[in-house]
Deep mutational scan, measured.
Amino acid sequence: VSVELPAPSSWKKLFYPNKVGSVKKTEVVFVAPTGEEISNRKQLEQYLKSHPGNPAIAEFDWTTSG
């Protein structure tokens, strides 16, 4: 189950709350306009370098507050 949070234009930000008793931590995933899922800052940096014209990296908020 995921919750969609505010994201930069043409992107989606999905929040996957951890299940009770789960060892997996809460996860935030950005979905690029191409449909590619980005789950960490390093991936995001690589994606933005190879896909010019996207929002600046500073516009991506990895917190769950939206």
Results as ranks from 00 to 15, higher is better:
residue 44 L to D: 00
residue 44 L to G: 00
residue 41 R to Y: 12
residue 49 K to W: 08
residue 5 L to F: 09
residue 55 P to S: 04
residue 53 G to Q: 05
residue 58 A to R: 09
residue 52 P to S: 05
residue 66 G to R: 10
residue 24 K to P: 15
residue 45 E to P: 00
residue 16 Y to R: 10
residue 53 G to N: 08
residue 55 P to C: 03
residue 52 P to I: 04
residue 54 N to G: 12
residue 37 E to N: 10
residue 1 V to S: 11
residue 10 S to C: 15
residue 42 K to Q: 13
residue 5 L to D: 04
residue 1 V to Y: 10
residue 59 E to C: 10
residue 60 F to E: 01
residue 57 I to C: 05
residue 19 K to E: 10
residue 57 I to A: 09
residue 47 Y to T: 00
residue 23 V to A: 15
residue 11 W to C: 06
residue 43 Q to H: 08
residue 26 T to K: 10
residue 23 V to I: 12
residue 37 E to W: 15
residue 20 V to T: 12
residue 36 E to R: 03
residue 44 L to W: 01
residue 62 W to S: 01
residue 2 S to I: 15
residue 43 Q to T: 08
residue 19 K to N: 12
residue 59 E to M: 08
residue 34 T to C: 04
residue 57 I to T: 05
residue 38 I to D: 00
residue 1 V to L: 12
residue 55 P to F: 04
residue 56 A to Y: 06
residue 64 T to A: 14
residue 2 S to V: 15
residue 28 V to Y: 03
residue 38 I to C: 04
residue 57 I to G: 05
residue 1 V to D: 12
residue 12 K to S: 06
residue 9 S to P: 15
residue 52 P to Q: 05
residue 33 P to Q: 02
residue 38 I to L: 08
residue 26 T to M: 13
residue 15 F to L: 12
residue 63 T to H: 08
residue 22 S to P: 09
residue 9 S to I: 12
residue 4 E to T: 08
residue 38 I to V: 06
residue 43 Q to A: 10
residue 14 L to Q: 04
residue 53 G to K: 05
residue 36 E to H: 07
residue 66 G to P: 13
residue 10 S to P: 15
residue 16 Y to V: 09
residue 22 S to I: 09
residue 5 L to S: 05
residue 49 K to L: 12
residue 12 K to E: 07
residue 7 A to I: 04
residue 7 A to G: 08
residue 23 V to N: 14
residue 56 A to K: 09
residue 39 S to R: 15
residue 9 S to Q: 14
residue 31 V to Q: 06
residue 31 V to D: 00
residue 40 N to F: 04
residue 31 V to E: 03
residue 44 L to K: 00
residue 12 K to N: 05
residue 44 L to F: 01
residue 20 V to P: 13
residue 51 H to L: 02
residue 39 S to E: 09
residue 31 V to C: 07
residue 12 K to V: 10
residue 65 S to M: 10
residue 65 S to G: 12
residue 24 K to I: 13
residue 46 Q to C: 08
residue 32 A to R: 00
residue 4 E to M: 10
residue 35 G to T: 01
residue 52 P to V: 05
residue 46 Q to E: 14
residue 29 V to H: 06
residue 38 I to Y: 03
residue 43 Q to S: 08
residue 61 D to G: 03
residue 16 Y to K: 08
residue 32 A to Q: 00
residue 3 V to E: 07
residue 45 E to R: 10
residue 39 S to L: 12
residue 58 A to I: 09
residue 46 Q to N: 10
residue 4 E to A: 09
residue 41 R to M: 14
residue 20 V to Q: 11
residue 61 D to Y: 04
residue 9 S to G: 15
residue 24 K to E: 14
residue 16 Y to P: 03
residue 4 E to H: 08
residue 20 V to K: 12
residue 10 S to F: 11
residue 63 T to W: 04
residue 39 S to K: 14
residue 20 V to I: 13
residue 2 S to H: 12
residue 10 S to W: 10
residue 41 R to I: 15
residue 2 S to C: 15
residue 18 N to R: 09
residue 25 K to S: 12
residue 47 Y to L: 00
residue 4 E to P: 07
residue 1 V to C: 15
residue 40 N to S: 12
residue 28 V to N: 00
residue 37 E to D: 05
residue 64 T to C: 09
residue 34 T to S: 07
residue 27 E to V: 15
residue 18 N to V: 11
residue 14 L to S: 03
residue 50 S to T: 14
residue 41 R to W: 09
residue 10 S to A: 13
residue 61 D to W: 03
residue 19 K to Y: 13
residue 12 K to T: 10
residue 5 L to K: 06
residue 66 G to V: 12
residue 7 A to Y: 05
residue 54 N to I: 03
residue 46 Q to Y: 09
